[in-house]
Simulated scan of single mutants.
Amino acid sequence: MSKRKFRFLKIFFKILIIIVSMILLYFIVIIAINSKKDYNPAISEDLEIKKGRNAWFFSDKSISIISWNIGYSALGKHEDFFYEGGKKMRPDKEQYKEYLKSIFNELGKMDTVDFVLLQEVDINSKRSFYTRQDSSLAGALPTFSHVTAINYNVPFVPFPLFNPTAKVHSGMMSFSRYIPEYAKRISFPFGYAWPMKVFFLDRCFIIEKFNLDNHKSLYIINTHNSAFDDAGDIRIAEMIFLRSYLLNFYENGDYVVVGGDWNQNPLGFDKTKINTGDYVREIEPAIENDYLPKGWKWYYDPKTPTNRDVNTKYEKGVTTTTVLDYFLCSPNITVNEVRTINKHFENSDHNPVYLNFSLQPDTAFCDSLKIYEKVKEIKSKEKGKKKR
């Protein structure tokens, strides 16, 4: 080997070692900072309730609820996402504004329902241009009470390497026409091991309790379970943990509705029943048949997908879709309707899902309805007497 060639290789390897060392140092510093500032919430935390106007439960003969993962207003039909095989970290700013505006408008149209459950709402994140989405979206439902629970709070996400996601501060929101007795953030006590945990979400669910005048309660739960194929075991553990709360509430004679992004297919899901022309896949592991005792039921629209893959922009019939968003109800609840509101993934990688249900005959809802009808009857008779 000539001296010139040897000198060249020596310089090359020195430069290579310096570059590798700098990259390693970069990640070591980020892991150290994220570890020091790691978000570590308690298992149970009380949430601040931003109170709206209080409505009467007997104003309608049924109760309605919508669950929607809004994809932090940055995963509309034109977007892909680097972590799932795409290239982008976020859309351009003008496109982002269009997504947020459209989601705000869609949310405003939901003011006729009783409850709205949102997932992936950014509070102060680079990926959504540091917009306070929680404050903005609260303005779409100004008469509703609402709570916010943080489930993603990381100082710096270093990927993609040349355009890092950086700061992420995000969470979930639950809106209600009624003022809850209390609202709690419950942490799923499972997740990735260190150091991966300092870059990922701290998963949780929101519990809202609504007292009824028959000394029972209605529990509305907003959940967002772990995603990605490598989180299968974590999802199973989360489901077992959630089950303990559900059974406890129901055994006390109360009513339970759980909605959200479960990141797994519902029990009985059959991809061949999707009739929208979309390409569909099934997610493993499936929810077990004996997950809950007899009477508990999963409710979803079997004909319409609720989620799309974001490895590429959305193209009907080509992009992979599935059902991840749905509801679970206790045996003392009667479901009247469930349907996916097919927005064709226009503004989010998820479609909203609507559920209409009734509390069974011995509930305060039905008692209050009878009282309401009786009051109307009395007032009608009084008007008749005055006319005479």
Rank of each mutant, 00 (worst) to 15 (best):
F58N: 12
N211Q: 10
I63V: 05
D38V: 09
G260S: 05
L324Q: 13
L247V: 07
T148N: 13
N336D: 11
V20M: 07
Y26V: 00
V168S: 04
F82Q: 08
V280E: 12
Y291P: 00
E315I: 05
A42R: 15
K14V: 11
R53W: 13
I240N: 12
K381D: 15
T165W: 00
S170A: 11
Y130I: 05
D367M: 14
P305T: 05
K387N: 11
F8W: 04
Y152N: 10
S73T: 11
T306I: 05
F162R: 01
V29R: 07
K167M: 01
S368K: 14
N336G: 06
D325M: 09
A231K: 11
V157L: 09
D114T: 06
S330G: 12
P160A: 08
E337F: 04
K374H: 10
T276I: 01
I123C: 07
P189H: 14
S2W: 08
M172S: 06
N124G: 01
D92G: 02
R185M: 04
R339H: 08
F205N: 08
N248G: 13
I207R: 10
I287A: 04
D202Q: 15
F162G: 00
G384A: 14
C204T: 14
I11M: 05
D309V: 04
S226M: 06
K273F: 10
S176H: 09
N214S: 07
